[in-house]
Every structure is written in structure tokens, then in C-alpha cells.
Amino acid sequence: MHQREAIFPENPKRHALYEMHGYSAAIRSGDLLFVSGQVGSREDGSPEPDFASQVERAFDNLKATLAAAGCTFDDIVDVTTFHTDPENQFDTIMKVKQNVFSAPPYPNWTAIGVNWLAGFDFEIKVIARIP
């Protein structure tokens, strides 16, 4: 049986946010990395007010967490995103997504509409294979 190992991005300010809320940025189990939902939060944990910037920052926060485990976006196999207004947000999200995942093979992707994300409008969680 594999032991779980907590993974955190290098930014110590973000560590305080994870500790305050009682969860890990990601868990390594064997050669898999399970990344908690990443939002478009600023350094102090507050939401980025512009939606497009919030989505970009969520991907930046995801990138930092992946990097802490030695992964990149290319190692992602499964994506789940949460959206507060999917119909109106879709085009913006797709523009950012196409910059991050610009060529096949694309990861699996499930998008879920929700009515609350603790002040955020977009959240992304992934599973990656650690190289």
C-alpha cells in the first residue's frame, strides 16, 4: 500500500491558507497526484475580481502545485472544473483552456455547474501521473 504524501506549492502564503482550511494542495499516492480544487485567488486568498483573470490565476495556482510534485500540464489525465455560470463563462474558460492544452491528446474533462464556490466563480481540480 502506498503512503500518502502532502504536496504544497512553494509560496509560503498559500501554505497558511491550506492550513487554515485543513486540507493539502495535493496528495501524492504512488505515481498519481490528486490536486485539490484550485481557484483564482490572489496571494492573500481573496478572489481575483475579473473573471478571465480569475481563470488564468486558477491555472497559475494549479501549475505551481503540479510543479511542486515534478509535474506539468502534460501530466494531467483527468480534469474537473466547477462553474457558477457555465453558459456565460464558457467562452472565456475555453480561451484559457486552449492556451494550456493546445494539442492532443487532451485530458479527460468534466465541467459542473454550481451555485457557490466561496466567493469564486471557477475552480479546477485534476489528477496527474507523476513522471
Rank of each mutant, 00 (worst) to 15 (best):
Y23E: 08
Y23M: 10
A25H: 12
A26K: 00
I27R: 05
I27D: 09
R28L: 06
S29R: 15
S29K: 12
S29W: 13
G30E: 08
D31R: 11
D31W: 10
D31F: 08
D31L: 11
L32C: 12
L32K: 08
L32R: 11
L33V: 15
F34T: 03
F34W: 14
V35M: 00
S36L: 01
S36K: 01
G37T: 13
Q38E: 15
V39F: 01
V39A: 02
G40M: 10
S41P: 00
S41D: 12
S41L: 12
E43Q: 12
D44E: 09
D44K: 01
G45L: 02
G45E: 08
S46V: 07
S46Y: 13
P47C: 01
P47W: 12
P47D: 06
E48D: 11
E48Y: 09
F51G: 04
A52V: 14
A52F: 06
S53I: 02
S53P: 00
V55P: 07
V55S: 01
E56F: 06
E56A: 15
R57L: 11
A58F: 02
F59R: 03
D60L: 10
D60H: 07
D60I: 04
N61C: 03
L62Y: 03
A64K: 01
T65Q: 00
T65I: 04
T65K: 06
T65F: 04
T65Y: 04
L66P: 04
L66A: 05
L66E: 07
L66V: 03
A67M: 02
A68L: 03
A69L: 02
G70V: 02
T72M: 09
F73V: 05
D74W: 01
D74M: 06
D75I: 08
V77H: 09
V77I: 15
V77K: 08
V77C: 14
D78W: 09
D78T: 08
V79A: 01
V79W: 01
V79D: 00
T80M: 07
H83Q: 13
H83F: 10
D85P: 05
D85Y: 01
D85L: 06
D85S: 06
P86W: 06
E87D: 15
E87I: 13
E87K: 12
N88E: 07
N88L: 09
N88D: 04
Q89R: 06
F90I: 12
F90G: 02
D91E: 14
D91P: 00
T92Q: 07
M94Q: 15
V96K: 04
V96R: 04
K97N: 11
K97Q: 12
Q98D: 15
Q98P: 03
Q98N: 14
N99Y: 03
V100F: 00
F101H: 14
F101L: 14
S102L: 13
P104C: 10
P105D: 09
P105T: 11
P105W: 01
P105G: 07
Y106W: 09
Y106M: 11
P107I: 08
W109Q: 14
W109R: 13
T110C: 11
I112V: 14
G113H: 10
G113W: 04
V114G: 09
V114Y: 10
A118L: 12
A118V: 13
G119R: 08
F120I: 02
F120C: 08
F120Y: 15
D121E: 15
I124T: 05
I124W: 04
K125A: 15
V126W: 04
A128D: 05
